Computed example of a mutant assay.
Amino acid sequence: MNNRINRLDPLSFPLQGKALIEASAGTGKTFTLALLYLRLVIQHGGDQAYRRPLLPPEILVVTFTNAATAELRERIRARLVEAAGVFQGEASDDTLLQALMQQLPADQHLRAARQLTLAAQWMDESAISTIHAWCYRMLKEHAFDSGSAFDPQLETSEQAWQQQASEDYWRCAYSQLPVDELALVVDCWASPDLLLKQVKPCLDKLAYLANPPGSALQLIQRYQQQRSAQLDALKAEWRAQDYIGQLQRVFDEAAKQKAFQAKKLNTGHRAGY
């Protein structure tokens, strides 16, 4: 396996096979992608080119957000128009476009200009979309092969479904419990919203979680027992070390110095702690 990293040359980058481009933010990924797009449109690349020029509906480009999709489409459209002008003889300071034109025989310049112009006019039909939008399109177009519905609904957020699942679970598992048992649940999660908030970070780790050894109520009761035992042990340690007595003396000394309002935290209140 070849792990060598080469400097990217967008004019000689292979247009067939598999390749990985690694780049950080602001290094010109969109600029490079647009130039590779031009090369596919004019069938540039010699032996590494496709057998025929490609049109926008035949070139798949996927990204992450709708905003990035719109920006990418407009950047590529503008690049196509600019390149078409260069191949028609317009002056340009873009050295890459000049080099691209020089690598094609002069008798192919007008052909390339026509292909670039046609591609720019066809960009509204380009296969540039988000990953989820592309998957949605494929499932819809190949419903028989994928076994999916003929009119699937694209959901870009799971929040509403997660909220409904949390409320359904709360209603089925907790709403019919006796008052004393329900009090244990509410002590952990006061509402379905808080239940979802605590459970949500675990949803993408379900494969790593073991099956619970008991019902949800049994787990809560076990947790309450463990917490009560830990608190009892902590209280016993405080009594053994006379931490409470030390704290009481600190409060008494602070009261003499009027460090706090005695009416709001009097001796009776402090004894209760």
Rank of each mutant, 00 (worst) to 15 (best):
I131T: 07
E158H: 14
D94V: 06
L139N: 10
I128Y: 01
A106C: 06
W122G: 05
A113D: 03
R114L: 10
S146A: 11
D151L: 15
M101K: 15
S146N: 10
T95N: 03
V86N: 00
L154R: 08
A106T: 14
P105I: 09
G85F: 01
V81K: 00
F87C: 00
A149I: 10
R111V: 12
Q108H: 07
A119H: 02
D145L: 15
L139M: 14
L80Y: 04
Q115P: 04
L97M: 03
D151S: 15
E82Q: 14
S146P: 01
A120N: 06
A127L: 09
A106P: 05
W122C: 13
A99Q: 11
T95I: 10
G147C: 05
F144P: 08
E90V: 02
S148T: 14
T130R: 01
F150I: 06
W134A: 11
L104R: 03
S146L: 09
I128E: 01
E82P: 01
F150A: 06
Q103G: 12
A106E: 13
G85A: 00
V81L: 05
P152Y: 03
M138S: 08
S92K: 02
D94R: 04
A120P: 01
M101S: 07
L97N: 04
T156I: 10
G89E: 06
T95A: 10
R111I: 08
A120G: 12
K140V: 07
S129D: 13
A133E: 04
D107S: 07
S126A: 15
E125M: 13
A133S: 14
H142P: 02
H132M: 08
F144L: 15
T130A: 02
Q102K: 11
A84V: 00
A113H: 05
R137H: 15
S92F: 02
